[in-house]
Computed example of a mutant assay.
Amino acid sequence: MLVLTTKTHQAEAAVEQWADVPVHDRDGTVLGSAAELLPIFTALNGVASEEIALRYFERVFAVCVWFPTVMTEPGEVIVRTLPPRGIFHVGRYGVSSDPAADTKLVASIGEEWAAAEFQVIRSEDVLRWKYRKLLANVGNVLQALLGDTAGAEDLRRAAEDECREIFASAGIAFAGDEESQAAWGALSIEPVPGEPAQLGSSSWQSLVRGHSTIETSYLNGEIALIARRIGRSAPLNAKLTALARRAAREGLRPGSLGVEDLRAHLGRV
């Protein structure tokens, strides 16, 4: 199996790189390609990577990742949770020709990943969880731009409210607040000795590492895309997406904008 853990905007390049890699048996005989034979698990934020993978791979499994970690230095991953370390909702994307085999595969992964103190939950409708995670991720951009989001709570709520409204208009189902709390509430996030308390989201990490690209186009930008498909608009999330692209393109770091500067850019002074 393959587990895809890039950012969504990097997914297609990774999938294309692996799709035609030959798969060998124990004797070295080529049995076929990775895309033909290996299941791929898309453990990424957003809801676009599954469709990207399905263009190449026969068997795609969507993974909703709830795993608060930070990587700002190569080779160093800061895990901030007590056991369970992370919770993963997993389910087949697309129509399966062998549901029993899929169920068995996900169960076996759950047993193996439990050794690393992860919890795997099989879901018949895993996209409900990925859309719920997408709602949670629309605030990532604020931390990436501001660093310290104190005083920007209303902007986060406004971005989330716009997201909820677009989901409702588009008929998109997602896990509710109580359901999410029941599933994800088992995670206990603790400070890591020797590390600052302000350790940010995946989008924040991209700017800290100085990347010239950022995942926001598949988070806030996804909300804008959904809105445009149904003849609506999501102006706040669209503007936040553009600001994130600019920050990555210009090499800006978290904190490059103050709250009032951001309000001015968003027209919410």
Results as ranks from 00 to 15, higher is better:
N220K: 06
V192C: 04
K133R: 03
V95H: 14
N137K: 14
G251K: 04
K133E: 02
G251Y: 05
A183K: 13
A159I: 00
Y93I: 02
F41S: 09
L134S: 09
A35M: 04
H211Y: 02
A227S: 11
W18L: 15
S217G: 11
T8E: 07
C64A: 15
K7Y: 08
A175F: 02
L37W: 02
R55S: 03
F67D: 15
K130G: 00
S108I: 07
Y93C: 04
I189L: 09
N45A: 14
V141S: 07
T241M: 10
T69F: 11
A48G: 08
I121D: 01
V90F: 10
I172D: 11
S201C: 14
A152F: 01
E124W: 07
E195P: 03
V141M: 03
L37T: 06
L225D: 06
W113C: 02
Q205D: 02
S97M: 15
A53W: 05
P74D: 00
W204G: 11
D148E: 10
A175S: 10
A115K: 14
V120Q: 06
L155R: 00
S188E: 12
E162F: 12
F57Q: 04
W204H: 15
L82I: 06
V70H: 12
N140S: 08
G176H: 10
S169A: 14
V95M: 13
R128D: 05
A14I: 05
L2I: 13
V65N: 09
R228A: 15
R253M: 11
G258S: 15
S217R: 12
P74V: 03
S256Y: 06
L199P: 03
V90R: 09
I121C: 00
E50F: 07
I189F: 06
T42C: 13
L187W: 01
F88P: 00
C163L: 14
L4Y: 10
V63K: 05
D148M: 00
